[in-house]
C-alpha cells in the first residue's frame, strides 16, 4: 500500500516538475539570451489559462483551448516585448524588476476588470478524465499522466530546437556574445522578440494545462513564478538543462516533502504536532534547498562561472 502511495507521490512530483519546467524554460532563455529578469512571466501563465478557459467555454474543444493558450500568451509576450521590454535590455536589474512588477499590476487588474474576480473553470476533456492503470496495478489520473507526457515532449522539442535548428544556433550564439551575432548579420531585435514570444507561449501552455486541475483566477501566476525563479536559480540562470533538472528537483522535493515530512515527524512526536511542524517545514523545503544550493554553488548547478 505504502509503496503504491509513494509511487503516486513521485508521479505527482514529476508532473509538478514538468509544469515548472515549461514556466522556467522561458524565464531562463530570456535571461540567458537577453539578460532580462522578467517578473511578468507569471502574468503570461495567467493569460494562457484565461485564454484557454474562454476558448473552451466558447467552443468546447480542449485542443483548441490549448492552441489558444499558446497563441494568446505568445502574442501578449511579443506585444510587451516590442512596447516595453525592449527598452529594458540595457538597464540594470532594479529597473527590470520594477518595470515588470508594474506589468504584473497592469495585467492582473486588467484581467480582473475583463473577467471579474471569480475563478473560471476549465474542464478536463472526457477522453482524458478518470484514472488509468499503470504497470504494477497503480491507479493514476490519466490527465496528470498526459501532462507529464506533454511536458516531456515539449522539453525534448525545445532541446532539439536549440541543438539542431538555425534559430537554436542563433539563440546559443546570442547567449555567448550578443554584439557579435548582430555584427554577423542576425536581426537581433527580431530574434529577441521571437525568444520572448517562445518563452511566453510555453508559460501560457503551462497555465492552460494546470488551469484544468486548479481554478483559473487572477493572481494564479505569481506563486508559480516564484517557484520558477527558485528552479532557474537552482539550475543556473540561462541554462535550459539546469532548468529541467532544477524543475524536477523542486517538483519532487516539494511533493515528497509534503507527503513524507509529517510521517517522519510522526515517528517520534504526537500526531497533531507532527502534522503542523511537518507541513510548516515542507512548505519551506524548496527554499531551504535553494538557499543550500546557492551557498554551495553561488551560480547554481549548471550556471556559467
Amino acid at each position: 500500500m505504502s509503496l503504491i502511495l509513494l509511487i503516486e507521490q513521485v508521479l505527482n512530483g514529476l508532473q509538478f516538475g514538468v509544469m515548472l519546467f515549461l514556466m522556467s524554460a522561458g524565464l531562463t532563455l530570456i535571461f540567458g539570451v537577453m539578460g532580462l529578469i522578467n517578473l511578468a512571466h507569471g502574468s503570461l501563465y495567467m493569460i494562457g489559462a484565461f485564454a484557454a478557459a474562454a476558448v473552451a467555454g466558447a467552443t468546447g474543444s480542449f485542443v483548441l483551448a490549448l492552441a489558444a493558450s499558446l497563441g494568446a500568451a505568445a502574442a501578449a509576450g511579443a506585444i510587451i516585448e516590442v512596447t516595453v521590454i525592449r527598452r529594458l535590455y540595457d538597464r540594470d536589474h532594479l529597473d527590470q524588476v520594477l518595470a515588470t512588477f508594474a506589468l504584473i499590476l497592469i495585467f492582473s487588474e486588467g484581467t480582473r476588470w475583463a473577467f471579474g474576480s471569480f475563478p473560471l473553470f476549465l474542464d478536463i476533456p472526457d477522453y482524458l478524465s478518470g484514472p488509468t492503470t499503470l504497470p504494477g496495478g497503480i491507479q493514476y489520473p490519466l490527465y496528470r499522466l498526459a501532462i507529464i507526457v506533454v511536458g516531456l515532449a515539449v522539453a525534448a522539442g525545445l532541446f532539439a530546437l536549440i541543438a539542431w535548428t538555425r534559430i537554436g544556433i542563433q539563440i546559443r550564439a546570442g547567449e555567448s556574445d550578443r554584439e557579435m551575432i548582430g555584427a554577423l548579420g542576425v536581426n537581433i531585435s527580431r530574434l529577441y522578440t521571437l525568444v520572448f514570444a517562445l518563452g511566453a507561449g510555453l508559460a501560457g501552455l503551462a497555465g492552460a494545462l494546470i488551469g484544468a486541475i486548479q481554478s483559473v483566477q487572477v493572481g494564479m501566476g505569481e506563486p508559480v513564478l516564484i517557484l520558477a525563479f527558485v528552479v532557474i536559480v537552482i539550475g543556473g540562470i540561462g541554462s535550459v538543462k539546469g532548468a529541467l533538472i532544477g524543475a524536477l528537483l523542486v517538483g519532487l522535493t516539494d511533493t515528497l516533502g509534503r507527503f513524507l515530512l509529517p510521517v517522519v515527524f510522526g515517528a517520534f512526536m504526537e500526531p497533531s504536532a507532527a502534522t503542523s511542524i511537518g507541513s510548516a517545514l515542507a512548505s519551506m523545503a524548496i527554499y531551504i534547498l535553494m538557499a543550500s544550493v546557492l551557498i554551495a554553488r553561488p551560480r547554481g548547478l549548471f550556471g556559467a562561472a
Binding site: 529578469i37 538557499a291 546557492l294 551557498i295
Partner: peptide, 21 residues
C-alpha cells in the same frame, strides 16, 4: 555571497520561506 539577479532571487526566496512558515 551572491550578487546581481541571484541576490534578488535569494532574498525573494527567504521572504517566501518566512511567508509560508
Amino acid at each position: 555571497r551572491t550578487s546581481g539577479v541571484y541576490f534578488i532571487m535569494i532574498t525573494l526566496a527567504f521572504g517566501q520561506m518566512f511567508y509560508f512558515f
